[in-house]
Design a protein around this nucleic acid. Sequence first.
DNA 1: TCCACTAACTTGCATAATGAAAGTTAGTGG
DNA 2: CCACTAACTTTCATTATGCAAGTTAGTGGA
Lengths: 162, 162
Amino acid sequence: MERKSFGHMQCPIARSLEHVGEWWSILILRDAFYGLSRFDEFQASLGVATNTLSRRLAALVEAGLLEKRPYMQRPPRYEYVLTDRGRDFRPVLLSLLAWGNRQFATEGRSVELIDRESGEAVEPILCDRATGRPIAEMRVRAVPGPAADERLRRRLSDPPVL
Amino acid sequence: MERKSFGHMQCPIARSLEHVGEWWSILILRDAFYGLSRFDEFQASLGVATNTLSRRLAALVEAGLLEKRPYMQRPPRYEYVLTDRGRDFRPVLLSLLAWGNRQFATEGRSVELIDRESGEAVEPILCDRATGRPIAEMRVRAVPGPAADERLRRRLSDPPVL
DNA sequence: TCCACTAACTTGCATAATGAAAGTTAGTGG
DNA sequence: CCACTAACTTTCATTATGCAAGTTAGTGGA
């Protein structure tokens, strides 16, 4: 949970994990995508301790992934709904889901994705937005961007990374 | 770290997080993709405590994401290299990287992806393998698979999920 | 032979995070 | 007035983590 003040925080993966890196955060977001929004719904779904849940929800609100808003003022009741930034996390969830299905669904899949129009199964893979080519078939390399510091530049310099 | 014996472990996202859910695991995998393989390399890169690192490496080996193998017998030295299952985690890392770049690169990007052939920037998005259509533009829904139990079936039944 | 050095750990101890259970707050409905 | 609900907070025991030091099995040099 603690912020590690370390050079690797320049890395966008580490920066993402700063916000969703703890155990419950991603499962809370998953439940939010599944339509849950209220404290007790998350609690019942996850079985997480309530103090941990309130901390995680607060952290996700702080990070701008969820918005806490009252849906009733008397008595005061709140719901936590995905922001644009939170909804933008969907590709990560779908990638995790697809990976879990490929690697750990030993006794068959328990969740599948379908296209609601055609009813066909959907298998998400990463493609380049511009060309539409599957990334797995491309020779993609991570390179330092304009905001990279010396340390990161050195790390990304020589080897064929990612 | 502990295994939560809970119904949500049927979910492929939760099952994925069982193996990579803790703070350091994903950063270790990132470094493995960046070409690191030795204990001290990970330690220096991450600044993680050595006891935690050895536990995490053992867990990743246990999960079949890394393989521990000697690269020298006298003196005995080991390296940790990605297995097929570990390499298959790449789309998750790239999705996290892309999300971090979109949402948290306030002062410009520090890491970018390029196609090594054309040199062009690559922006990874999720597409359906069969049709090539971007998933964001499709109406995708999660439905129970053959191995889903009653509890999960109920959760995936009514709302327009994911 | 002795000494310094390396990689890959393990151990001991203090601190931080988490879980379980109980308590709190601000209400409703009977 | 009493039971009940949602959304928490507090307390306390357990667990995980970080830090520093020690261990193991070697190499290379004086």
